[in-house]
């Protein structure tokens, strides 16, 4: 997919035009999901009813039609409340944090609420410590969520080049938040993983500017590797390891046996072709004789 198409995909996801029932946003103390949620709201432009499930938000955001305080109620009661306010038309559920669920209940909660007409956008804070599961060896909430999510947005700040990321991670783990590093900024990096219905997933990295509403794909600078660098092979041994142009051409022109087989047999669109040999005893009348 070209760069342009990837930006179109992001725009379609943010305006909920792409079929994707569960958007998982993984944020951190370095870059929160606040601005990305605001970007969804900007793109949606009041075209959809928003139900806000609050586990840590004090007041109803302006864009929310319904605000459900989930702090003292159990997941099944939340589901009941959501279902009572949900309308038949398309609606969006925003969950401010999935860190308040136990790993054994979170997937059931999400899958009960998500439907073709209801999209869920939920944030998971990666820096919150993960408690030991009440059932031994049960997967963590995050692994379960990344498994069921149809789109995953991993947010990171755009850090100055000279920053030591390991040191920064250590400081954050000790809850010492450094200053003036453009953390929690309206311009940030986002790794988008989008899952197709077929199961194929595509991954893009974007720089999202929520002030100007502009998205730009980030191309990771790959170190240039020249596989045919003959100079690496020189002076290693007394043998000649290099190949001349003439030898290379000859090598490329060698027709490999499996290529030949594909041309003659596989031309009929993936069908299995059985070639009888002279010793084969094949009786057309006997159904059990069918070699396929």
């Amino acid at each position: 997919m070209s760069n342009q198409n990837s930006v179109v995909l992001l725009t379609r996801l943010l305006s909920l035009k792409e079929s994707s029932p569960f958007h998982l946003i993984i944020d951190s103390l370095l870059q929160s999901s606040y601005y990305l949620i605001e970007e969804y709201v900007y793109k949606l432009n009041n075209s959809i009813d928003i139900i806000y499930l609050s586990f840590e938000t004090a007041k109803k955001p302006n864009y929310a039609k319904e605000f459900i305080d989930c702090t003292f109620i159990k997941p099944d009661e939340i589901i009941k409340k959501v279902k009572s306010v949900i309308t038949t038309s398309k609606s969006l559920i925003i969950i401010d944090s999935l860190n308040y669920f136990e790993n054994i209940e979170v997937t059931n909660f999400i899958s009960t609420l998500a439907s073709p007409t209801t999209t869920i956008i939920a944030t998971y804070h990666i820096n919150v410590p993960i408690p030991k599961s009440s059932i031994p060896n049960y997967p963590s909430a995050l692994s379960l969520l990344t498994y069921i999510a149809s789109s995953i947005f991993e947010l990171e700040p755009i850090l100055p080049i000279d920053i030591n990321e390991e040191e920064l991670e250590n400081e954050i783990a000790k809850l010492n938040i450094p200053v003036n590093l453009k953390l929690n900024s309206p311009i940030f990096k986002c790794t988008l993983t989008n899952r197709r219905k077929s199961g194929r997933s595509i991954i893009y990295k974007f720089k999202i500017d929520t002030k100007l509403h502009e998205y730009e794909i980030i191309k990771e600078a790959q170190p240039e590797t020249n596989e045919e660098d003959e100079s690496l092979l020189k002076d290693l041994t007394t043998f000649n390891l290099t190949t001349s142009n003439k030898q290379k051409l000859a090598k490329e022109q060698v027709e490999l046996p499996f290529m030949q087989a594909q041309e003659s047999l596989g031309s009929s669109g993936g069908a299995i072709v059985y070639e009888f040999e002279k010793d084969d005893d094949y009786d057309e009348e006997d159904p059990y004789e069918d070699p396929f």
Binding site: S32, E56, A58, P131
Partner: peptide, 14 residues
């Protein structure tokens, strides 16, 4: 230690 870490991290997110 776990309880405090969890408590403070979640506070920082608010």
């Amino acid at each position: 230690g776990f309880k405090l870490h969890d408590f403070l991290t979640k506070l920082y997110h608010r």
